[in-house]
């Protein structure tokens, strides 16, 4: 165990665990848009930046992304230093210019006092903030169905060649974890579609209820050694109430 100081309070931490983990454990609110516990941190959104210093740094301080910075003994962290707040509102301002229609971005920006962007709005833009949560989740789950394509301002998330991706099993994890709900999907009458690909749902033999797609069930059965019958028997006892 090591000790670090967060906003004036000395707290315990494990050596090497990320600052954000410690900060959140202390119930301190630091905004993030590219962080998800299921995947490796990426450092893309830069909102989680904090000011750090050490007594021996002679008053010099650094600005680092807390999601990626390992805790070290004696570190002094300020999660809401003036410069950090300024940086966050500036980044949110950039987001707001790019995604003026996203309610999630508007709300977060408002929390940092940015109600209207001072930059040129991109009116016909979409709501994907390029956080990479979807692609990283898809990679972590082992499917690699979607990825970031292109670079710079024109970067986008897409399946290979922009066609219905072979590797996608329709688990919807990308869509459900997108911070701006950008990814479209549709579930109805035992059918599911996402990324221009159509799926049939696996239905319970007894009650006909559906939970996941046939492809996903088959994948799990094959790769995870689970009896396929389990997926055709989804009587959810606890759902009766």
């Amino acid at each position: 165990m090591i000790h670090i100081t967060i906003n004036g309070k000395v707290v315990q931490a494990k050596d090497g665990e990320m600052l954000l983990t410690v900060i959140r454990r202390e119930q301190i609110d630091v905004p993030t848009l590219c962080h998800h516990e299921a995947v490796e941190p990426s450092g893309a959104c830069r909102l989680c930046m904090v000011e750090i210093t050490k007594p021996e740094w002679d008053g010099w301080c650094d600005y680092v992304t807390s999601c990626l910075y390992p805790a070290a003994d004696g570190l002094i962290v300020n999660t809401h230093a003036p410069k950090v707040n300024e940086l966050r509102s500036s980044i949110l301002d950039m987001y707001l210019a790019r995604h003026p229609k996203s309610p999630e971005i508007r709300q977060l920006a408002a929390e940092y006092g940015v109600l209207k962007t001072q930059f040129e709005e991109i009116v016909d833009g979409n709501n994907c903030i390029l956080c990479g949560i979807c692609t990283r989740i898809c990679d972590t789950m082992g499917f690699h169905a979607i990825s970031m394509v292109g670079r710079g301002h024109g970067k986008e998330v897409a399946p290979p060649l922009n066609m219905a991706p072979d590797a996608c099993v329709g688990c919807l994890s990308c869509a459900k974890n997108c911070p701006t709900n950008y990814i479209e999907y549709n579930v109805s009458n035992g059918n599911l579609s996402i990324w221009k690909k159509d799926f049939k749902m696996a239905a319970c033999k007894e009650c006909g209820k559906t939970t996941i797609t046939k492809e996903f069930a088959e994948y799990l059965s094959k790769n995870r050694d689970i009896n396929i019958d389990y997926f055709e028997n989804v009587t959810n006892v606890t759902e009766k109430n």
Partner: peptide, 20 residues
């Protein structure tokens, strides 16, 4: 702006706005 990889927000959006 063209060469930015586009991964992080300040570079992707900030340089774009500076250029604008």
């Amino acid at each position: 702006v063209e060469e930015s990889c586009g991964k992080c927000t300040p570079c992707r959006e900030g340089l774009y706005q500076l250029h604008k």
